[in-house]
Design a protein around this nucleic acid. Sequence first.
DNA 1: AGTTGTGAATCTGTTCACAGCC
DNA 2: GGCTGTGAACAGATTCACAACT
Lengths: 212, 212
Amino acid sequence: MPVPFGHIPIFTVERLSTYIRTLRQAKEQGEKFISSEEIALRNGFTSAQVRKDLSFFGSFGKKGLGYNIDLLLESISKILGLDRRWKVALIGLGHLGEALANHKGFQKSGFDVKAIFDIAPEKVGKKYNGIPIFHVDQFPKKAKAIGIDIAMIAIPSHSARETIENVIKSGVRGILNFTDVSIPAREGIVIKNVNIASELETITFYLARGKH
Amino acid sequence: MPVPFGHIPIFTVERLSTYIRTLRQAKEQGEKFISSEEIALRNGFTSAQVRKDLSFFGSFGKKGLGYNIDLLLESISKILGLDRRWKVALIGLGHLGEALANHKGFQKSGFDVKAIFDIAPEKVGKKYNGIPIFHVDQFPKKAKAIGIDIAMIAIPSHSARETIENVIKSGVRGILNFTDVSIPAREGIVIKNVNIASELETITFYLARGKH
DNA sequence: AGTTGTGAATCTGTTCACAGCC
DNA sequence: GGCTGTGAACAGATTCACAACT
């Protein structure tokens, strides 16, 4: 089933996902067609970049006219694997975990949080937002039973490495890691490390030197 | 005061901030020195990359020995502008906003959330975690009075563009934007767009094609 | 006239490989 | 012997610029 298109730059993949949001917003504003220039403008990219990104996967536009928004939305969604729903587990129901469990954007893109894992006895066995909470020790068993595709990790850093190893061992191949411990990807596993303090730190780098 | 080191790759800046976390963790484990190889290994980078990143800013290591962790921590912190504290405002106290207001990692890196802004009448005028909550309309006045350096935006997308324009007009030069609307940077302003659903979407791209 | 799609040229970032120092 | 620091070589991503199409 996987259809390879040759090698795709990682930055292209990240931008595709931005285009989806831009297209949804243009659609809400009543637009039917959109040019590469307009997509670029809204995001601070260049129009050539938008066209090149899309060209890796095919021809979706009409010369002189631009892109049909509905068609392009559907095409990019398919490219990103969003033409199906994905079962997501959340590990760690702290403040960030709650935010993730409540995140509106997931539903729209096809992600369903199917199970939550934590170690706090007062949480385990209950439900949050209708989603069952299990003990982290149960992860391998439950993940297999439910068919979890992706795990989001939002736990303290001291147990991060061990927990993520167990997640990988249990057969889950996609990991979105919010902990302070950045985990290298490895054969067969897709890991994305996101660190919120890091994001602020790249901002201060530029602010501190007045170069921006 | 800003000391220019020539042009620095954006990826170098992002990795520096990862190195800080790695160094802190090594330090907690009782290490005093660390090699570029060890830093690389823990994060899935290459040792040459670590050395090259640091070489943009000076020589921090000892040949044959590696890097003194305390010294390197201090050096990188200074490079990233973390040798001072930064005043941060949070706009939007929804689920994600609450997570940001409670985020432990900020304190450690020198970020203090000094004010929260929202539009809900039941929140405005109260405090959250000891941080005062103001109406978003008050942002320009309060931001100036407090001396806000960076604004974190965690509001629904429909009001994102307008709110961010007002933040920029009020003189804040650093923005961490969590909304679905990605905002282009512009002269004099540093903007970082972070989208959590996007992160999942780049994972599914690879999962969907079995290529990882 | 307007806009796409794309090879070629350019620019940016990474890796190699080794001299130099501890 | 081990590890850094770095110029040179390489790989990867972006931009240019224009032919092709509506």
